[in-house]
Design a protein around this nucleic acid. Structure first.
Length: 566
RNA sequence: GCGGCUGUAGCUCAGCUGGAUAGAGCAUCUGACUACGGAUCAGAAGGUCUGGGGUUCGAAUCCCUACAGCCGCGCCA
């Protein structure tokens, strides 16, 4: 019996009370009720606060309503005991057989256990990182890589149709600064004022020369302008490919790499920039002032109006942003999720206003997640990074030093809006100080146990064929089963709230519950010594398989591997 | 000045869509090695949930306010 099934059972009880007239609910019977796992032992396997929630509406008091519900609930299949406690809590105990059946269901579900349909039918675009292709990805991008990727996975698991997208800022003056910085490195010319510096620029210069020998040599018909364009193109291609390779190494995957430049190309019907500007004019949300073209975002709650075309005729970044949003909507996305760093939170207001300007309800279509910045400590001092000084902590260096799994997990286990300080020594430690290894270890342990069982001739097929769930009757069996039963709703709420850290915290709890179970003498899976294999041993083999499935599925949602041995 | 985020055990942080005695890991102390992988488990100790008001059966959670820290308020990208 899962919490969802128990909730349905309680709803049935309410319906039945309502039909026989002993309960009157003006708003009708709720479709589901809250069922939670009490923290306290002795408060039953599950608890519900329905009677407190409904007492006022029903014109009665919580204790009296609880009595009514309890009486019927006690007679329900799978329920072994119901007690009323405190102001009107119902503490419910579940029969071992009803609860144990879940283990076989999980095994049958396999890699899809935990997946739900709570977001079915929603087409969601998740845009994250979206770095300039003018340098390596660094620490600042790493958190969004992990969170964006995990959010995408969790949304998919909740049934949404998800596209993970990287917006390439390949247009704008920074691309020319980028090219001229590479030229300066190759030719010894002076670096431009707003240029890029650092060892990576020198390496890029060499790579550009290697890719197209002689590219830096000016000649007749190949002037400064041509060289700048050529270097920009080649340097961009190399830098972008490097970002893509490093993200792949970091187990972070995108469905679409979207070029900002493409929004300005001819033939962009919907969502192109010219098209967008025309549409905004038609809608009456733009005006000219001081030689610039403005969008009247203040009509929709922004602090001030925003420039689309500067007085020098150049388009702003915001013009592209608006077109890009329309482009996403034209591609059929119901929700556009943006992951932005705290240093960009000033953009939220204008993004929402922009969506409202084009006729959308931002509360429905736009979801801006602001993440706080990450600090990194080494030997007690903050590792500062400065792109200008070329002192960059790159994503790739971090992933290599710390390990992809440890780095991903360390970032995934905190909510995005909490400022984070990572200590390199702390997260590289290969010990139980490090939650990622604690969880992975529990998984490896299940794999060893299953291998040992196989050596003794215990197979999953036999175990399932003879499975008697009522044999999983020990308290610790129940604790483990209830932990496993929570997985689907943890995934669903992680998706709903866009908070994948919940999955990580759940895995830590579940790994702990599993280890406690493992250390319980009465819950041995393998027979001891020369004892024959008993039905209870086989039942627990199913339970171990179920545990392995849940941990593996959970780690997969975070993009972390589930090793079979460590 | 305006706005966003944060403030919970010695440390790093969960819990925040209101529920029962506020949790975990680390660090400290005490135990379990005839071990299905000890990268584990059992236990102890550790708290004015930043301060002050309010809302109600009930507040770490919601509202107001004060304080502290980080970040942002361009015809930059």
């Amino acid at each position: 019996m899962t919490p969802e099934q128990l909730s349905a059972t309680i709803v049935d009880v309410l319906t039945s009370l309502s039909e026989e007239g002993s309960l009157s609910l003006p708003d009708g019977v709720p479709t589901s009720v809250t069922v939670e796992r009490p923290r306290q032992k002795g408060h039953g396997d599950y608890a519900t606060n329905v009677s407190m929630q409904l007492a006022k509406k029903a014109g009665t008091n919580p204790r009296a309503l609880a009595e009514l519900i309890a009486e019927k609930l006690r007679a329900s299949a799978g329920v072994s005991a119901v007690e009323i406690a405190g102001p009107g809590f119902l503490n419910i105990s579940v029969e071992a057989g009803a609860q144990g059946a879940l283990a076989a269901d999980i095994v049958a579900g396999g890699s899809s256990y935990g997946h739900t349909e709570t977001l079915a039918g929603q087409k969601i675009n998740v845009e994250f990182i979206s770095a300039n292709p003018t340098g390596p990805l660094h620490l600042g991008h790493t958190r969004w890589a992990v969170l964006g990727d995990a959010i995408g996975r969790v949304l998919s698991a909740a049934g949404a149709d998800v596209t993970r997208e990287f917006y390439i800022n390949d247009r704008g003056v920074q691309m020319n600064h980028f090219a001229s910085s590479i030229i300066a490195s190759a030719t010894g010319a002076e670096k431009p004022e707003d240029g890029y510096a650092g060892a990576y620029i020198d390496e890029l210069a060499k790579a550009v020369e290697a890719a197209r020998p002689g590219i830096f040599q000016l000649s007749e018909g190949y002037g400064e302008g041509e060289r700048l364009a050529a270097v920009r193109e080649v340097g961009y291609a190399i830098q972008l490919r490097e970002q893509q390779e490093q993200l792949a190494f970091f187990n972070t995957h995108f469905d679409v790499w979207f070029s900002e430049l493409s929004l300005h190309e001819e033939g962009q019907e919907t969502g192109g920039v010219p098209n967008t500007l025309a549409r905004l004019k038609d809608l009456g949300h733009v005006y000219e002032e001081g030689g610039a073209l403005w969008m009247r975002t203040t009509d929709f709650g922004d602090d001030k109006d925003r420039v689309l075309i500067k007085s020098d005729g150049e388009l702003t970044y915001f013009a592209s942003d608006t077109a890009y949003y329309l482009n996403k909507r034209a591609r059929g996305f119901d929700h556009c999720i943006y992951l932005l760093g705290a240093d960009h939170h000033g953009y939220v207001g204008r993004l929402k206003a922009m969506a409202a300007c084009v006729g959308d309800d931002p509360a429905k279509t736009l979801d801006v997640l602001i993440g706080q910045l990450v600090k990194i400590m080494r030997d007690g001092a903050e590792v500062k990074l400065s792109k200008r000084a070329g002192n960059i902590v790159t994503l790739h260096e971090l992933a290599e030093e710390i390990g992809v799994d440890a780095l991903r997990y360390s970032l995934a286990r905190y909510p995005a809006d909490s400022p984070l300080t990572l200590d390199i020594a702390e997260i590289t430690k290969a010990s139980n100080d490090n939650p990622v290894y604690y969880v992975q270890y529990a998984h490896a342990r299940t794999c060893r146990m299953i291998a040992n069982a196989t050596d003794l001739g215990m197979t999953l097929d036999d175990a399932l064929a003879t499975f008697d769930p009522s044999l999983l009757a020990h308290d610790r069996d129940g604790d483990l089963l209830r932990a496993l039963a929570d997985f689907p709703r943890v995934v669903a709420s992680s998706a709903e709230l866009r908070e994948p850290h919940r999955v990580a915290r759940y895995l830590e709890d579940t790994a702990s519950t599993f280890n406690k179970w493992y250390d319980t003498k009465e819950c041995r899976m393998l027979p001891q010594g020369d004892e024959p294999v008993a039905p209870a041993n086989l039942a627990r083999l199913v339970l171990v398989h179920a545990t392995r499935t849940v941990i593996r599925n959970g780690l997969d949602l975070l993009g972390v591997t589930a090793p079979e041995r460590m």
